[in-house]
């Protein structure tokens, strides 16, 4: 197991109380596995991703543990996490491509980043160039400023930078979301290429777009309102989802070839519960079309079939 997470709880401290954005997550990611992480905006995907690498205030570690390649990660301790960050676990944060320092040329930016981590950039230059080739970027980008690059180019630069030190685990947060359809496809395929070339061992790909995950992920984890709803092999999640939320999420996706006049799709009525004081029991209860009495208790996140876990009383029947 590359990554094992047990009962992880991370809240945001606010004046009005704790926002329970990640409220008890247990799952694992295997060696070489690309796990997709999906769910509505605000369900806690980025919170989960960030928890594995850097807890910045107002994020607060509440409980649980994380093992990477068998080693416990001291995620609650900024200092002790430093040797793991980028070298063992790396993240491409949401919006990273818009956060590149505009006053630095890409080459200098990379050099400074590497030196800050005590790595000689000269030694890595040949490898850097090889990787730029792989993502179809000309070496000229090293002499360019971020503003001179298109969104797709910046995203590929960020992907190369964050994996240069061959981390064991890469967390890619919404890296394809802002891109157009053709660039999105290539960037997603390049992520798979990074795994196949062993630049990274395993990957968590965060996106609200399940159809992208269907293309590249080995497994999919669906979150709802700070909790894990369902995890399973990609094929099972897409073809035979067992959680009512996953089912509704998938049926709300327009497929090419569908017109509103022929088949009217519908969204999921209602909105997610507040995470400041989330309701007891199943958090999907208010919007769930098949909720019943039992759902006032919290459903356990348990295995239905090997590798397929669901948190729903109906599924466990």
């Amino acid at each position: 197991m590359a990554l094992k997470v047990e009962g992880l709880r991370v809240y945001y401290q606010t004046l009005r109380g704790d926002v329970r954005a990640l409220d008890g997550a247990s799952f694992s990611v295997g060696d070489g596995e690309i796990m997709g992480l999906a769910g509505e905006s605000g369900c806690g995907k980025s919170t989960l991703g960030r928890s594995l690498i850097l807890l910045k205030p107002p994020m607060k570690y509440v409980g649980g543990e994380v093992l990477l390649d068998g080693d416990p990660l001291p995620i609650w301790d900024r200092e002790r996490m430093a040797p793991y960050r980028y070298k063992k676990v790396s993240i491409i944060p949401q919006q990273a491509m818009n956060a590149l320092n505009p006053t630095r040329k890409i080459g200098r930016l990379i050099r400074e980043l590497l030196e800050a981590r005590g790595v000689s950039s000269r030694d890595l230059l040949p490898e850097l160039k090889r990787r730029l080739d792989l993502v179809e970027l000309s070496h000229e980008v090293l002499k360019m400023y971020p503003i001179e690059l298109s969104g797709g180019m910046k995203q590929r630069v960020v992907m190369v930078i964050s994996t240069l030190l061959d981390p064991s685990l890469l967390i890619a947060d919404e890296v394809t979301s802002a891109l157009d359809v053709s660039t999105q496809k290539r960037v997603a395929e390049m992520l798979v290429g990074f795994r196949d070339h062993k630049f990274v061992r395993s990957m968590i790909v965060i996106t609200h777009d399940i159809s992208i995950l269907y293309q590249i992920a080995d497994s999919i984890l669906v979150m709802y309102a700070g909790k894990l709803a369902e995890k399973g092999p990609t094929e099972a999640i897409v073809r035979r989802p067992r959680h009512p939320y996953t089912q509704l999420l998938i049926s709300s996706l327009p497929e090419i070839g569908v017109r509103h006049t022929e088949r009217r799709l519908s969204g999921i009525p209602g909105s997610p519960p507040p995470l400041l004081e989330p309701p007891q029991g199943c958090r999907f209860r208010e919007r769930c079309p098949v909720a019943f009495d039992r759902c006032r208790e919290e459903p356990p996140f348990e295995e239905l079939a090997p590798g397929h876990l669901v948190a729903c009383w109906r599924a466990h029947g």
């Binding site: 777009d209 327009p254 009217r264 799709l265 519908s266 969204g267």
Partner: peptide
């Protein structure tokens, strides 16, 4: 927008 909200706006 989210997938489920998207379809509502499209409709």
């Amino acid at each position: 927008l989210d997938a489920s909200t998207r379809i509502d706006v499209l409709n």
